[in-house]
Nucleic acid binder design. Structure first.
Length: 441
RNA sequence: GUGGGUGUAGCUCAGCUGGCAGAGCGCUAGGUUGUGGUCCUGGAUGUCGAGGGUUCGAGCCCCUUCACUCACCCCA
């Protein structure tokens, strides 16, 4: 057997309904907020990611799947989607039609990290990006939208972490203050932080090594260094979130790993997934479009970790696979051709049908029907054929009714319709109110 | 990239100090000659992750390697 590649996984039939439900819920919600879907290639020139994500980030330094095309061109399996969306915005000149573009996309990303719970080498994200709007209200609106998505999916135990990373005007002063502080602590910092000290000092903020935390316990906070514009922007984001009753936690240690972020940075965290606790994260990247040779346009976006979200939703919701309406049990070899015709006719008419062509004993067929969870079994043998009608057995109440072979499909559909009505009214009698926010499969 | 844990039947797992490869569930056939779930009886299924070593003899000990998993790291 040739197994799949380390860190990759198959999404099996029992799981796909959850994936689909989440994707559809997100798409419907995003569309209500004016987002349109964009579909992008999963391979781009390596340079796109090197320039957008930043040369000295972990992703570019050691996590990208990069290949040579053999003609000296280096191409990369995308490690994230934002760079591609920005490229499309620029290359297809979407800004010429309207600088304001709200786009979402769903698909796989690739990073060569060591796999663990909630972390795969091929993982899936839902991305949403807004171009051309700098107003803080759009920052807040994205978070409102995200928060509502998780409400619709009935997920609890979440928190919104919020920070501002400043802009090219105010960040240098903060970085300098941070670097000064790190110089004093050089003796005790861990090896990783010593490296980060020069290359990306802000990363030391979220280091978990106790010694580093100790050095950083009185670390300056970016929010104390924000310039007037950034401070005003940040406070408007907060008040807008307050208007929508979105609970959030100000987290001065929330740092994004990618170079292009400015101002608002946020993360939605869960307490139910172990170490990989971020199920969505994003922020503003006002300088990126220009940096990739596009027009000067502000932008903001987020990514949802679909694999992690599926994990959370599945925990709350037991899987439920599709079961046939009708199982055809035709006894004997000579009836298989007839059974074949019936199964095609039923399937084509929209009745979920299952059949076993093996010609086993009726007992074995019944057993199989039961295992598949079939609601009804169509039993046909030589006796029935002689009488011109087959038997339809209700597997729950064991009731059996004759069904004329002539016009069989219509008879069965009518019977199933009555049966459904019966079930519906029974449900209503029980009068259990459905929670509005819970999605159902 | 670095550490810890785990690899035995389709699944969940026993397997003592090194001595015939096991159980439950599932699958399958029958009991019931044409009726599922419960019950009873029988049956099939193994590269003990892989490769090497020690030994009369290895699932068990040693070395190497791979995979899964959790954590570090990083992030969604």
């Amino acid at each position: 057997m040739i197994p799949l590649i380390r860190g990759f996984k198959d999404i099996l039939p029992d799981d796909t309904p959850v994936w689909k439900a989440i994707e559809e819920t997100a798409a419907a919600l995003f569309q209500s907020f004016g987002f349109k879907e964009i579909r992008l290639p999963i391979v781009e020139k390596a340079e796109l990611f090197q320039r957008s994500i930043g040369e000295n980030t972990d992703i570019v330094e050691k996590e990208m799947y990069t290949f040579s095309t053999g003609k000296g061109e280096m191409i990369t399996l995308r490690p994230e989607a934002t760079a591609s969306v920005v490229r499309a915005y620029i290359q297809q000149q979407l800004y010429a039609k309207d600088p304001v573009q709200k786009l979402y996309t769903i698909g796989p990303m690739f990073r060569r990290e060591r796999p663990q719970k909630g972390r795969y080498r091929q993982f899936y994200q839902i991305n949403a990006e807004v171009f051309g709007i700098g107003a803080p209200y759009i920052d807040a609106q994205l978070i409102v939208m995200l928060w509502n998505l998780f409400e619709r999916l009935a997920i609890g135990g979440l928190s919104v972490q919020l920070n501002s990373l400043g802009c090219p005007v105010c960040r240098p002063a903060f970085k300098q203050a941070l670097t000064d502080m790190l110089e004093e602590g050089t003796g005790v910092l861990c090896a990783d932080c010593l490296r980060r000290k020069d290359k990306n000092p802000m990363r030391v903020l979220d280091c978990k090594v106790p010694a580093c935390r100790d050095v950083m316990k009185d670390a300056p906070s970016m929010t104390d260094y924000l310039c007037e514009d950034c401070a005003s922007h940040f406070s408007k984001v907060q008040s807008a979130l307050g208007l929508q009753q979105i609970p959030f936690v100000l987290n001065p240690r929330l740092v994004r790993g990618l170079d292009y972020y400015t101002r608002t940075a946020f993360e939605i965290q869960t307490d139910a997934l172990g170490a990989q606790n971020a199920i969505a994260g994003g922020g503003r990247y006002d300088g990126l479009v220009k940096a990739l040779d596009g027009p000067e346009q502000p932008a903001i976006g987020f990514a949802i970790g679909l694999d992690r979200l599926v994990e959370l939703v599945s925990q709350a919701m037991p899987q439920q696979s599709l079961t046939p309406d009708v199982f055809i049990a035709a006894i004997g070899e000579e009836l298989q051709e007839k059974a074949f015709e019936w199964s095609c006719a039923l399937g084509l008419s929209g009745v979920q049908t299952e059949i076993d062509f093996s010609g086993k004993s009726l007992k074995a067929l019944m057993k199989r029907a039961d295992r598949l969870g079939a609601a009804h079994v169509l039993i046909a043998g030589s006796q029935e054929m002689a009488q011109g009608s087959v038997i339809l057995r209700n597997m729950k109440n064991k009731e059996q009714v004759p069904v004329p072979i002539d016009g069989m499909v219509d008879h069965i559909k009518q019977y199933l319709k009555d049966y459904q009505c019966c079930k519906e009214s029974e449900k209503k009698k029980k009068a259990i109110p459905e929670p509005v926010r819970v999605i159902r499969f």
